[in-house]
Design a binder for these strands. Structure first.
Ligand code: FES
Ligand code: FES
Lengths: 151, 151
DNA sequence: AAGTTATAAGACTCTTAAGTCTTAAAATAG
DNA sequence: CTATTTTAAGACTTAAGAGTCTTATAACTT
């Protein structure tokens, strides 16, 4: 997998949060139900995002999690970095240590170019941009269900 | 990891084979020593490539493996496909089933574009192209050693 | 024919990611 | 103040990838 399962779930959950116009706290249970992700597993992932400051959480009734900033200001990159780290953008394609620091491997040049494509995509895409598209065209956010079923 | 460890080792070994100008059989033991890869593990990987017809093997003294075609005609894509399969180029970035077949997810459009970049790179790059570059500039093929130490 | 060099095949172990479960702590509502 | 709802934290289990080891089979050398 390009992105780990945790990361993918984190992205889906982030989109879910960004898609809600009210900005109250959203219970993790609600998200795990709607997105068909194990509650405990999702909790763990969201704790990471909370730890990174992307989300804030609140305990007790009416508690849950919410984005700390507007979805417009949050790029996919931010979510990926918080969960998977930067390995994808810094690792040598041949698995050699010190890509970009030590003498390059023969794939380096081409791989660095390709990698920039990935970086640009992740950096330039915001949560809001995707949720807007998702709502406009009722795109999929779960195996079967689209954005409109969700809200 | 973008590519599995097996795949990366397969690529390094393929480059090693392509870098040898004589086209006799190369013992796997020699490759595992030079490339610092576990002999048994590398053997398993190369068996996959042999099964896919990219390599041919020969048993007994003076045996080993060699490319079935010129390195000029073998793209990185071929190696990656043989070992990791096409998951990277066909899977949904959000892990949803049926990317490209069912209703897309909100990332689909951007991801498909990025993915084409990866595909093009893998398809357009040949083993010979990389070994030439590797030899010309003595690039790394192992953690420390360059192409020139190798031969 | 016998011994040696090499790949082939598959069982086995080790490590890490993925996923589950239990208990604690915080906040609210009555 | 007590019961309920919710996140927090971490132990635990499962599954998959990575890596090792053993035994077979083919081919050569003497
Ligand atoms: S050194 Fe291999 S990709 Fe940079
Ligand atoms: S459906 Fe998600 S990337 Fe194609």
């Amino acid at each position: 997998m390009l992105l780990s399962k945790s990361c993918v779930y984190g992205l889906r959950a982030s989109l879910y949060l960004a898609a809600r116009d009210e900005n109250g706290y959203v219970p993790i249970r609600e998200m795990s139900d709607k997105l068909e992700i194990s509650f405990h597993f999702l909790t763990k992932i969201l704790q990471q995002l909370t730890g990174e400051g992307m989300l804030e959480s609140y305990k007790g009734p009416n508690g849950g999690v919410r984005l700390t900033r507007s979805g417009e200001d949050i790029s996919l990159m931010e979510v990926v970095m918080a969960i998977d780290g930067d390995y994808m953008l810094t690792e040598c394609a041949l698995g050699l240590p010190g890509c970009g620091v030590m003498k390059p491997c023969p794939i380096h040049e081409k791989w660095a170019e390709t990698r920039d494509g990935i970086r640009d995509m992740l950096e330039s895409t915001t949560l809001t941009e995707l949720t807007k598209k998702g709502k406009d065209f009722d795109l999929r956010i779960t195996a079967e269900g689209g954005f409109r079923d969700l809200m």
